[in-house]
């Protein structure tokens, strides 16, 4: 079975480490915050200028001056800090964020990522995505393995305009955990009950399949 959005978030959360500063993109990445392991401390960075993002507020604590990068009202945790957009991106560009999780339309074997622009469709903008992929060392891309029409999103070369070049090393899809190195994908783990054959069939770029591909485990 393909992973649900929650299971994808849960699998990504296994990559968290105690003391990590983490930037989570919109969509599935946001859900990762719900699966931080017990007893582990991580601090969420929101690129509009908040390190230590907390839960959504209650009606009583709602504040127009407290939002996240998705423009939703939020709270700050104890120990949070708030700063300007330049300071925020200094953290991101300077490589100070330990883990970045974001979505994409396509990823290719060269580690290129396309996530912001579909030609002939209205372009809303890249927001902070280009800064995040260029600045972070440790990035996990979350996306479905193939489109609704069955077209692979793991390609030999991205077909859409890029968000970043050669910056992606890890991809979690609804079917597999894939790593990228030396111009090829490697199948590291598969979703429970998903066959290697299905993953091979749905991966357009060169995929190396080790002899043993373990199933993901969920606590």
């Amino acid at each position: 079975m393909a992973l649900t959005r929650e299971q994808m978030a849960q699998r990504v959360a296994q990559e968290l480490r105690d003391g990590y500063y983490v930037n989570l993109g919109i969509g599935i990445p946001t859900l990762v915050a719900n699966f931080v392991p017990q007893g582990m401390e991580v601090m969420l960075q929101s690129e509009n200028g908040l390190l230590g993002m907390g839960a959504f507020p209650t009606e009583e604590t709602l504040d127009a001056d407290m939002i996240n990068a998705g423009k939703q009202t939020v709270t700050a945790v104890k120990g949070a800090s708030i700063f300007s957009s330049a300071e925020s991106f200094a953290m991101i560009r300077g490589g100070h964020v330990d883990l970045t999780v974001l979505g994409a339309f396509e990823v290719d074997v060269h580690g290129n990522i396309a996530s912001w622009m579909i030609p002939n469709k209205l372009v809303k903008g890249m927001g902070g995505a280009m800064d995040l992929v260029a600045g972070a060392d440790n990035i996990i891309v979350t996306m479905t393995h193939a489109s609704k029409n069955g077209e692979s999103k793991l390609l030999a070369d991205c077909s859409l305009p890029l968000t970043g070049k050669g910056c992606i090393k890890k991809v979690l899809t609804d079917l597999a955990w894939i790593e990228i190195d030396a111009g090829q994908f490697t199948l590291v783990e598969r979703a429970p009950g998903v066959s290697v054959e299905e993953i091979v069939e749905k991966t357009a770029g060169k995929l190396v399949v080790p002899e043993h591909v373990p199933e993901m485990t969920f606590a």
């Binding site: 300007s84 957009s85 330049a86 925020s88 991106f89 995505a129 280009m130 260029a134």
Partner: peptide, 28 residues
């Protein structure tokens, strides 16, 4: 890009006419 935009303002205000960044390399 958002970080480039912030830095363009910061640098502009600080009298720095241009700067190098990795953001956007290989993209439109």
């Amino acid at each position: 890009p958002q970080g480039t935009l912030a830095e363009k303002m910061r640098a502009g205000g600080a009298g720095i006419p241009a700067f190098y960044t990795a953001t956007g390399v290989g993209t439109p």
